[in-house]
Amino acid sequence: MVSAAPPRLGRLSPLTVLCAAVVIAVTTTALNSWAVSAGVLLGLAVLLASVGLGRKVLPAAAVIMVPFGLSLLLTHGLFFPEGRSVLWTFGPARVTAEGLFFAASMGLRTAVFVVVFLAFSFHVQPADLMALLTKYRTPPQLGFVLCSALTIAPAIAARARRVAQAQQARGLVTGSGLRGRLAAVREQAVPLVLALLHEAGSRADSLEARGFGGRSRRTSYREVTDSRAQQVFRTMLLAALLAFLVFWYGAR
């Protein structure tokens, strides 16, 4: 979704990838074991690297997981009042084996969640998402908002650059200190928001003129890759997940 490149997980339907992502995330969370999470993470890294998605997904996941991991280490690694096996103390900080173990398990579990859903994001294209939402008859407004948000960012960035350049051409100079900086931000933010409101107004008129508010069933020019075999696979996958959850929590 983030790139305009074609899907990289073969000819898998986005729904199949989403289904697999949900099953992996839910199963790993339910098992709640650091060893399982680490194994799944390793398996995912190998799989994504083999299909050429590793270079995109893994750095993106690292950007999210590094601050998250640091936060967990700060919270549980240094301060874990419930911990008994103290490894090191320094002032109020008390590193315990239980705290480090807890931080590692939560971090690994969250890393699996992040990697599988990022893999889905990099696999699906906004146009496919729109076609799928149309096919399954969700409100057309949902497809518009999701796909518009995913594709509008470059246009907003370009508009923000133009506003900044225009203000600089009129003599905008960022003053020193907090007050000067805030004034400069205001000088750029107000025209930007005003332009975005104005453009949104024109877009609303165009959409209305083309029957956007109508309730009749939509059709889509775009066909999303799917097959009977994938549909059966998805059903079986979800049924297996349900059976696993009933067994796992029922047995406790």
């Binding site: 999210i64 601050p67 640091l70 936060s71 700060l74 919270t75 009042p81 807890f102 931080a103």
Partner: peptide, 19 residues
């Protein structure tokens, strides 16, 4: 869900209360 917060600064505050 996460056993903590996602930001380093917010994590430090949680750590202080845990201490």
């Amino acid at each position: 869900v996460y056993g903590g917060t996602s930001g380093v600064a917010t994590g430090a505050i949680v750590g202080a209360f845990r201490a």
